[in-house]
């Protein structure tokens, strides 16, 4: 009886056991990068939780990092919601990366509070596979709300935030810094990642080498 209860608890999405980076909940979306997946609990982007991607400069590869997962989700028929993207998500490039665009929603709120509301609604709806947002001001209370909404909707909540917020507390299940570094061997760049926070593991550094995910080859994206 007790064991059953413990087992039931372990199945619960909110619980993680220390010292265990890999669990078999299956609640993760593979990232599409063979060297990144093993570093993430569950082997991918955590479903039903917030992931913060911290970056300094637009165009550093921060969006390409999540594209393989988003493309896979869209092809499974899950909706991808973009709330207030800073630029135009460019349809020809998205399709070339395998995205099913008929499963993409662009949401244009007028104000910051409406944006947070829309993110929460989309996360909670249960129909979105992933919600992407670029919140400018986001206090811990708002983040907590979004985290709960992501749990309720079993949704991948991707927040793109400036790396300056690294020091602030956050309920996100995963915080990962991303930035380009010059590739010493070739002409291009590689994406340097630093995992600041993950469930059941400490910080880690890794870089996505050329060829992975077809995104960071020597002469730019394919």
């Amino acid at each position: 009886m007790t064991e059953e209860r413990v087992e039931a608890l372990l199945q619960h999405g909110n619980l993680w056991r220390a010292g265990r980076t890999r669990d078999d909940r299956g609640g993760a979306v593979p990232t599409g990068f063979a060297t990144l997946d093993p570093e993430l609990p569950g082997g991918g982007w955590p479903r039903g939780a917030l992931t913060e991607i911290l970056f300094d400069r637009d165009g550093g590869g921060e969006l390409g990092l999540v594209m393989p997962a988003l493309a896979a989700l869209s092809r499974q028929g899950r909706w991808i919601a973009w709330v207030a993207p800073p630029y135009v998500p460019y349809a020809p490039a998205l399709v070339a990366l395998g995205m099913d665009l008929s499963r993409n929603l662009l949401i244009h709120p007028r104000r910051q509070d409406e944006a947070l509301w829309a993110v929460e609604q989309a996360l909670r709806s249960g129909t979105c596979g992933a919600v992407l947002a670029w919140p400018r001001l986001c206090d811990p209370r708002a983040l907590r709300r979004l985290q709960l909404a992501a749990e309720a909707g079993a949704c991948l909540g991707l927040l793109f935030r400036p790396s300056g917020v690294r020091g602030q507390a956050s309920p996100a299940a995963l915080r990962i810094g991303a930035g380009p570094v010059r590739d010493t061997a070739g002409q291009g760049t590689r994406l340097q990642l630093r995992i600041h926070k993950r469930r059941g593991g400490g910080p880690a550094d890794l870089s996505l080498a050329a060829g992975q995910g077809d995104l960071f080859t020597g002469d730019g994206p394919r």
Partner: peptide, 15 residues
């Protein structure tokens, strides 16, 4: 769904 396919070598963000 759109009328056209994708094209390679295009950026993800367009200004």
């Amino acid at each position: 769904a759109g009328p056209a396919g994708g094209s390679d070598g295009r950026p993800l963000w367009l200004l």
